[in-house]
Amino acid sequence: MHRFAKPSVFLKLADTLMPWMIAITVITGGTGLYLGLFWSPADYQQGDTVRIMYIHVPTAWMGLFCYVGMAICGAMSLIWKHPLADIAARATAPVGAMFTALCLITGSLWGEPMWGTWWVWDARLTSMLILLFLYLGYMALVNAFDDPERGSKAGSALALVGVVNVPIVKFSVDWWNTLHQPASVARMDGPSIDPSMLWPLMLMAVAFTGYYFIILAIRVRSELNERRIRALQLSGLFEQGDGTTSGSALYDQGHNAGAGK
């Protein structure tokens, strides 16, 4: 476990896996889109609008998946002080928020032809909206500190609190929804799903997961590089060349000033 905590090990691993992840994402994404848009049958009631499902449902899964992933990273950072876990949790948040937002947008686009309105306070959509709020809260908290490490730690704690709350929120929203709306509203997914619809759905889910891991690897790498740059700036090395280039004089160089010159 801790072997992968070393950034160098992680980066090497990510480099090796990257082409494979890209290949899987492109192939499953392409096939999934083709199957979803052309091969699978149109719904006899909804017509072609049902094809929105092939984006909508996997993004909903990914929204939840990313949040749980964020909470797991948070737990790893709190329990094992795993240095990469914080960075991974931080890198996951915007991706998860984007999936959740996409889910809400496609849900709204799908709702218009189905229900004649852009937004219904449907239990699933409302839960996803609250999930989006949880993501936004996490991102705001993580970026609200001058010390990025402190922000990441606070975020990890929040993600854990949030993940305990997600089932409670889901349960209470379901309860609220059945109270206020009779069950006549059409459900977005039928009780049983035809294999011709299941295949593109699954392929799209795999593609989105692959996309998530690609973005995660890129974001973690750039965050690590950013830390290295900050460390270099702290070291005062940039002042050696010409005094005009850098704002590094703004940093408190501390007792490390002059080291290595």
Partner: peptide, 13 residues
């Protein structure tokens, strides 16, 4: 922003 989403269950019930 952090707390209000967590308050929703209390509000509902």
């Amino acid at each position: 922003l952090l707390v209000l989403p967590l308050y929703i269950p209390v509000l509902i019930f």
